[in-house]
Design a protein around this nucleic acid. Structure first.
Length: 614
RNA sequence: GCCGGUGUAGCUCAGAUGGUAGAGCAGCUGACUUGUAAUCAGCAGGUCGGGGGUUCGAUUCCCUUCGCCGGCUCCA
């Protein structure tokens, strides 16, 4: 009875291109499940939704898992089903019949889900929908194509196999997930595959190795990167920038240690709330235990608490690029993106309740300045809230509600677009997170700003107000430049390893046209070096062409070519990495230009940025 | 931590149904002295990730362990 209506709905929806793609991917997931069933009749079905670049389906293969070698055969099975032009027939089964059917089929996962849908009253008209194509039936809300023959030629490809927990819960069974790529046409699939291949060239792990930025060594330990001289330049430049920005914004720098007694973390609540993410404790002097710190906050709170604070001292802004250590799960580590030792652009702002909103605004403005300058345009803002059903969060319901509404109001007041997500907060308070996707499409939090209502109590932080009363300050935790590790991993990929002059490990490469020019080159080098520029002369025995090629391969932002003409005119021929067009500039002017570029932190790694006039 | 894949010279890769391995680039040496993306020649480089087992013999088969890759979980 409903098949008719559904077909009409589908036709309406198919007019929308996105909906059509959605239906295509949905149908391919169904077709894949059918093909998998032909190969492995015992496979149990779990979820199989469309996703950003295609679809996946989760299966339970019991004792005999499948591997990537099986994908070809499954793909062949799918093609055969597509060739048969099997119609997708919808049937709405009454709930009790649906449950009985799933139980008979032994579809335990689907059965669990069906029960849940019914309990939550999501079974429309007391029925659950099933789709059948050929001899394969699946409980599914649709919509699907009209028949399998509507799948465009070569529009899909089975991509990879991975594991996934049933309902995303690590305590429940591990299923096998098969990912497929699917697009509206074969051409679009090809385009995506080409794009993905190109993107791999910018992978920060690959570039990090090629450009000598960082290494990892299994004897040192996983997730513990070693920064090479070139990578350390990037860190230093970001830190230098942060120091200037923070100085102007009224922050004060502090320095605190990386290890600390357990007592501190009992007070802060890191033990037990955060203990799973910490390196195990070290026994010291028989009765004492120390931890590597996972965060700097408790140390900063102690600095606040060490002196009597007046309302006149607030807001007090303490900052530190601090090393922190977190015991991330082995399998989640990835290049610089997820590590176990990291250095964070940390700061804590202690302020009165009246100051919270304006301090929050200032922090957000700082983010916007950094992101705008670095041209990190592709992010979303997430308001991360607690989840009262989770034990991960401190159990103080009213304060959660209150602080969450403060943050929400600030964001609304700033007219910032954001998405709320529960269960993403810090254990001690709500956060505003800046979420960025890397080349591989993996989304991570880069920057975060948190409102803390709990630590002031735990650390008994107070200030004396104008009325002589002791009151609780609020705390903002913020890290706009993230950790060096994560920020630099994103920047490497965003810039394809080509950094602006102010950050670049080697800022200028001097290429003499012939050995007779070595003197002029070395004199020029001294001039730049004395002015604190990172400069190299290529005095190798290579050909001129090879020297140019080498400098370009290393993505050095500026090549200065020195020949007879240049020496005669006391000039250089300036070739930028970002732009082929080159210019002849007097050596004196060139130095001034470089100095300006450094001072302004010019983003000359982009072709639309011109060299300054000097 | 869990699931799947993978591991050959510094890097990118080739190769042998079990008889101890090659190429390009990089490195070193020499020649060439160069005006905008690879000059030529020679040399040197690997207990084929580690350990154990089967075998006359293993890098190749089996077990185990470590690293790496993609996911899941988790998070800056």
């Amino acid at each position: 009875m409903c098949a008719h209506r559904t077909t009409q709905e589908q036709i309406v929806m198919l007019e929308d291109k996105d909906a059509a793609l959605h239906a295509l991917r949905h149908s391919l997931a169904h077709i894949m499940a059918a093909a998998v069933r032909q190969l492995r009749p015992d496979a149990r079905l779990a979820f199989g939704p469309p996703v950003e670049y295609g679809f996946y389906y989760d299966f339970d293969f019991g004792e005999t898992p499948i591997g990537e070698n099986d994908l070809k055969q499954i793909e062949q099975g799918m093609r055969a089903i597509i060739k048969k032009r099997e119609p997708f027939v919808r049937e709405d089964k009454p709930c009790d019949e649906a449950l009985r059917y799933l139980e008979e089929q032994g579809e335990l996962y689907k059965l669990e889900y069906a029960r849940e849908l019914i309990e939550e009253g999501k079974a429309a008209n007391g029925t659950l929908s099933f789709y059948t194509s050929g001899d394969f039936t699946d409980m599914c809300e649709g919509p699907h194509l009209e028949h399998t023959g509507q799948v465009p030629k070569n529009c899909f490809k089975l991509d990879r196999i991975s594991g996934s927990y049933w309902r995303g819960d690590e305590k429940r069974p591990m299923l096998t997930r098969i990912y497929g790529l699917a697009f509206a046409s074969g051409a679009e699939l090809k385009e995506y595959l080409a794009m993905r291949k190109l993107a791999m060239e910018r992978d920060h792990r690959k570039l990090g190795d090629e450009l000598d930025l960082f290494i990892q060594d299994s004897e040192v330990g996983v997730g513990l990167p070693l920064w090479m001289p070139n990578g350390t330049v990037l860190r230093d430049e970001l830190e230098k920038w942060a120091r200037e920005v923070e100085f102007l914004a009224g922050y004060q720098r502090v320095t605190t240690p990386s290890v600390t007694r357990k007592e501190l973390y009992l007070r802060s609540g890191h033990v037990p709330y955060y203990e799973d993410s910490m390196y195990p404790s070290m026994p010291i002097d028989e009765h004492d235990e120390y931890y590597l710190r996972p965060m700097c906050c408790p140390h900063h709170h102690k600095i606040y608490a060490a002196r009597l604070r007046s309302y006149r001292d607030l807001p007090l802004r303490l900052c530190e690029y601090g090393d922190v250590f977190r015991y991330e799960k082995h399998g989640s580590l990835s290049g610089l993106l997820r590590v176990r030792a990291m250095c964070m652009n940390d700061a804590h702002i202690y302020c009165t309740p009246e100051q919270v909103a304006s301090e929050f605004r200032n922090v957000v403005a700082m983010y916007q300045m950094y992101y705008g300058h670095l041209r990190m345009g592709n992010f979303r803002v997430r308001l991360s809230l607690h989840d009262k059903n989770s034990a991960k969060f401190v159990d103080r319901y009213e304060e959660w509600e209150r602080s969450e509404s403060i943050v929400r109001e600030v964001l609304d007041g700033l007219d910032i677009k954001y998405e709320e997500e529960s269960g993403e907060a810090a254990f001690y308070g709500p956060k505003v997170d800046i979420q960025v996707k890397n080349l591989m499409g993996r989304e991570e939090t880069v920057s975060t700003c948190q409102l803390d209502f709990m630590m002031p109590d735990r650390f008994d932080l107070t200030y004396v107000d104008a009325d002589g009363e002791r009151k609780r300050p609020f705390i903002l935790h913020r890290a706009p430049l993230s950790t060096h590790e994560r920020m630099i991993s994103f920047l490497i990929e965003l810039y394809g390893g080509a950094f602006p002059t102010w950050m670049a490990p080697v800022q200028v490469c001097l290429v003499p046209v012939n050995p007779a020019m070595l003197d002029y080159a070395s004199e020029t080098k001294d001039m730049l070096h004395t002015a604190f520029f990172r400069v190299e002369v290529d005095n190798s025995a290579e050909s001129f062409n090879k020297k140019i090629r080498n400098a370009i391969t290393r993505k050095i932002p500026n090549i200065w070519i020195l020949g007879e003409k240049e020496k005669e005119a006391q000039a250089v021929t300036w070739r930028r990495y970002a732009e082929k067009e080159q210019q002849v500039v007097s050596r004196h002017a060139a130095l001034n230009m470089l100095t300006t570029m450094r001072a302004q932190r010019l983003m000359d790694n982009f072709a639309d940025v011109a060299l300054p006039d000097c």
